[in-house]
């Protein structure tokens, strides 16, 4: 099974906040992120910022993985696992239901 199929086969875990919702986030160069709708704030590292910016552009999961592979010399499966974990944390901060 390739990584794309894994995402599709676990839609509950991999559902992304929409690009529109993510575009509402205010992101500073330091990695500090403020959500003006929920009032939540949190911080991410350089890789996290890159992922959020890719998702803000409307990239889907396979495209995000491909973009990360360009920057990080790592297997797609490893990137996918870390990305899934990051998205899970991101969803805790960004409540898509608002």
């Amino acid at each position: 099974m390739d990584s794309t199929n894994q995402f599709i086969s676990h839609p509950g875990k991999s559902t992304l906040p929409s690009a529109d919702r993510l575009q509402q986030l205010a992101i500073s160069e330091s990695g500090f992120i403020f959500d003006p709708v929920s009032g939540h704030s949190f911080s991410v590292n350089e890789t996290g910022m890159l992922i959020v910016r890719l998702l803000q552009q409307g990239k889907d999961l396979p495209a995000t993985i491909a973009a990360l592979q360009n920057d990080y010399n790592e297997l797609a499966a490893v990137i996918e696992r870390d990305l899934m974990e990051f998205i899970s944390l991101l969803r805790e901060q960004v409540d898509a239901s608002i």
């Binding site: 003006p36 709708v37 929920s38 009032g39 704030s41 608002i98």
Partner: peptide
């Protein structure tokens, strides 16, 4: 963002929902 013992706001942040 922060409450007193009586549950009153001790700190808060403006939002728009």
């Amino acid at each position: 963002m922060a409450l007193t013992d009586k549950g009153k706001a001790w700190a808060g942040v403006s939002i728009f929902s």
